[in-house]
Write a protein that binds this DNA or RNA. Structure first.
Lengths: 213, 213
DNA sequence: AATATTTGACTGACCGGTCGGTCACTAAAT
DNA sequence: ATTTAGTGACCGACCGGTCAGTCAAATATT
């Protein structure tokens, strides 16, 4: 008897694991296609093909194309956010050094993310005007807020240990810096010849001098 | 006899003026609707209604919805670019002062542009994946390039007159700064509570200290 | 055998673009 | 002055393609 229920629960667990795996498989397939064709240029059928499943199956896992798109968004945020957090926590050294290392890590991630970067623009656009506007807008607000918070904490540390001037407004610098990183990647997206890494590094030299006074 | 032809050409000129005016009227109507609903959420019929004309008429002026959208893009670029150029050329004073004034002017324009800002995101998205990708991408590349150029010239002036350190990389700082302004407006778009003007000002204090060494 | 899962052909709402026709206005003819 | 003919701006009903989402049948699982 216990055997049965054990087997049952094992299988249940297995199935649910399978379901979850398949769900991420679909999300990853969708990310590829959305990145290539944009939201409205993407056919649900194409995603199904990319994921190697039937179109109907897709609707077992997601209620609508928009739902799936939002799932891709969450997947992307988690993926990139995790990366940033790792590179911060792994870092030692002075606040300046950590700021520089973070910059390098973020700009470097450009290379791996290049073909997914157009997703970011789709997300922005979705937050601007689609049905899903509010969902996206809120997520972005929170995302930027979190990131600002991490960076401003780093700067505040620098102030506290006397490395940076005490009259520096950590929040403002953090907000601007987060934006700068974002926008450098954006410019790199538009211009093959633009090198976000060296640009960011040289800029950081100047900024850090301004922080240290 | 000459009277006739004169009258004819006057009328022709009048009509063409009317045509041009109407074209801008349509573009402005389209800008509103695209900003509200996004590119693919917008019905050509809605634009026609907003412009107070029939749908068929719209196609007398533009070949396709995409053409019209690109016209809106050009209109927007011209509108905002003109503003920036004015505020730069009108400025006197030291390089720092001009940099600060430019910052203020740009962040201030946020207020007037707020309800058109979602257009920017639509443009980004168009440059990422629509049919029109290349058109948009190129225009953005050029636009950012021009702006970087203006700002880096300003910084180089500062270096030359000894106000900024000679080892500052003007190009990199300009690229980052252009990006920062952009991204601050983006964050303001996502977050009502975010004040791009004060954030930018406080940030500029730090940055200019870094430039001046 | 019963149940769960997968599938892709099908449907109908949707919408960009077209087209035949109207109207206001001009210009030559009478 | 009046008629006639020509022009092109304007219109919106319509067409035809498209595609998200459905569902009955097929297949796999227990």
């Amino acid at each position: 008897m216990t055997g049965w229920s054990e087997k049952g629960s094992v299988n249940l667990a297995f199935r649910q694991k399978n379901k979850k795996e398949k769900k991420t498989r679909i999300v990853e397939a969708a990310a590829k296609v959305f990145a290539r064709r944009g939201f409205s240029g993407t056919l649900v059928a194409d995603i199904a093909v990319e994921a190697g499943i039937g179109k109907g199956t897709l609707y077992e896992y997601f209620d609508s194309k928009e739902d799936l798109f939002f799932a891709v968004f969450e997947w992307f945020v988690q993926k990139t956010g995790a990366e940033a957090k790792v590179s911060i926590s792994a870092l030692g050294g002075s606040a300046s050094e950590r700021l520089e290392a973070l910059t390098e890590s973020l700009m470097h991630s450009w290379v791996e993310l290049e073909d997914l970067y157009s997703l970011v623009m789709e997300f922005w656009s979705a937050s601007a005007s689609s049905q899903m506007r509010e969902r996206f807008k809120q997520a972005f607000r929170e995302g930027y807020g979190d990131f600002r918070h991490i960076v401003s904490a780093l700067i505040r540390e620098g102030i506290e240990c006397g490395e940076f001037r005490p009259d520096v407004d950590a929040e403002s610098v953090a907000a601007a810096l987060v934006g700068t990183w974002d926008a450098l990647l954006l410019q790199a997206w538009f211009d093959e010849a633009f090198n976000p890494l060296t640009t960011a590094k040289r800029f950081m030299t100047v900024l850090i001098r301004g922080l240290a006074g």
